[in-house]
Design a protein around this nucleic acid. Structure first.
Lengths: 341, 341
DNA sequence: TTGTAAGCGTTATCAT
DNA sequence: ATGATAACGCTTACAA
């Protein structure tokens, strides 16, 4: 019986295999494998011959075959709702670098804020990776459960979920938001609006809860559905003004900048006519005018922590880690006392 | 001789294999494979049995094994200098989605503006992928050559390089920059500074060349080394002011916003005291005050085009495609006539 | 230290 | 229409 002749076509041109190197060096494939893995002791004589042969032939191991043989791909997946949000690309960027240091590659997927797509994307990602990092997932708990049930490490970022099979690292937005709210109240504002960000996001719920706390201080808090983008903030400016408020707490910097833009267009000034706070402290926030009062959410630290946890899981550690990183309010020029009226 | 018992440990828990499904369904592995691939005709009787067995066992094909067998991984790589630049994540986001539609996954890597790392990252990426998309590479031509010599599709984005083995899709920045410069000259500015962006970038060279064109119109053009970030723009504000110019052409929106921020801090107003132009038209540019005069670089279209080219290459088409997409100036409020002095 | 060969989970050829 | 089975390129247990 003769085997088929495959892979000799143009695309994906046949690369040099371990067998050819072995033959050229006059050793067995096992020896070549050992030399490249540095796994077992090989006499320097053979090592030299192998290396020379490999060099001459331009051999590099086929990673796919290696992966299949050892049962790990050295690739992890990361799924985020929207790559275009600075929030996430800072996180991703850090994870990329941390993973690379440990010899891992990262497949990135973006669900485009589409909750329904999250699970399918997660499954697909898990098929070709050793583990999955979920950024701010809004999928149902049962869906998350199904993902982790596939037996591979899953770490959830920016959403608290009490499943013991899941490891999580979250930023505590509540306290920073509370401080921002108190700051505004202390400034003397009595009528503020809270803008709701991405519906269904856990972080969003935390922030809203913190903002509502203001009511206990006798401050009127109007809640307006907004969204998490520049356009969203810009769009709701009219509604905000209709409430007669003197301060607005935005769900993130993007929305805050959108609102400020809308205000400016109407000839209003920040903070003289309206105080505005953001959230996240994206790099822009320092450079817009006025510089934004916001909360710094350490996405880089979060990324580093997420990888740490993932690395542990990949290493066989038990899941269930719970990490919380605190956001910090940062006070800049977009908030001030309301006009004496 | 007894084989080893592997993969029965905890991590990477053994998944159900095609063999188990075959056994459960009482058919051969070939049949199962056929059912899942839809490749050859299988009687509906057996198809049903296979599907049922697979369902019951929770079988999903091992993508790695598939890849090894068919010789393609259905994964492509993309390498960018800095994921944190809106410029790039818009591009990536589009490529992510286009690739996904075609059943491909994308491994993202970020060279952190480190030219030296580019080649090594490219090689590493090519090892586990079917093709590579290079975003604004600054690596030497010979290095690019080495990458494409590995026999897999390589498409270069945002850099013109005349190697016939390379396919490129670039944004023509020259003409848009020229128009921006002319616009400023027409407004009456006679002393302008051009800020240099990322050193070594092809796009940057194009823009600088366009800006210098102003000299032929009798406009004084001072060139200042700046960089491509918000901080860079902010940092050079003093130098800009020292030239006594009335307008500054920034290499991108980030730097422009940085300059405006520096100007504002010094109590100067844009555009009354200084006109400023950006480049790229990132989403922020519409929402800062004043809204930025800039050039729209269609990164989304570029992403779509890049994938188109890559898909063709993956399909066996010949390399060497040259695609050019024009940037378009967009005039907003950050430019105006200089103060009568 | 080195070689032999089984096994990783598929696909695809060839024979039936 | 099915089934055996070689092959994909590697790792590693075991024997020598």
């Amino acid at each position: 019986v003769v085997g088929q002749q495959r892979g000799n076509e143009e695309p994906g041109r046949d690369r040099v295999t371990i067998r050819q190197v072995a033959q050229a060096a006059g050793v067995s494939v096992a020896t070549v494998s050992r030399v490249f893995a540095g796994s077992a002791a090989v006499s320097s004589d053979l090592t030299g011959r192998v290396l020379r042969a490999a060099e001459a032939l331009g051999y590099t191991p086929n990673v796919l075959a290696q992966s299949l043989a050892i049962g790990r791909s050295k690739v992890v997946g990361i799924l985020v709702p929207n790559l275009a949000n600075p929030h996430f690309y800072i996180l991703i960027k850090r994870i990329l670098h941390e993973a690379e240091r440990d010899g891992y590659r990262v497949i990135v997927a973006d669900s485009d804020e589409n909750v329904a797509a999250e699970k399918a994307l997660g499954v697909s990602l898990l098929q070709r990776t050793d583990g999955l990092i979920l950024g701010a997932p809004r999928a149902r708990r049962s869906d998350l459960r199904e993902l982790v049930d596939r037996g591979k490490p899953v770490v959830v970022v920016n959403r608290a979920v009490d499943d013991p099979a899941l490891s999580t690292v979250v930023i505590d937005s509540f306290d920073a938001m509370r401080q921002l709210a108190v700051h505004v109240a202390d400034l003397g504002h009595r009528n503020v609006v809270y803008l709701h960000g991405a519906a269904g996001s856990w972080q969003e719920k935390e922030r809203a809860r913190a903002a509502r706390g203001l009511r206990r201080r006798g401050v009127q808090v109007t809640e307006i559905r907004c969204g998490a983008t520049l356009e969203d903030g810009h769009r709701v400016t009219g509604q905000v003004l209709d409430t007669g408020c003197t301060a607005v707490l935005a769900p993130n910097d993007l929305a805050a900048i959108g609102v400020i833009s809308g205000l400016t267009e109407r000839g209003l000034r920040v903070p003289e006519d309206m105080s505005v706070t953001g959230f996240d402290d994206i790099p822009f926030s320092r450079f817009v005018s006025p510089p934004l009062t916001t909360a710094f959410t350490p996405q880089e630290d979060t990324g580093a922590a997420a990888w740490q946890v993932m690395a542990g899981l990949l290493d066989g550690k038990r899941p269930g880690t719970r990490l919380t990183i605190a956001a910090e309010p940062v006070f800049r020029a977009s908030t001030a006392a309301p006009r004496a009226s």
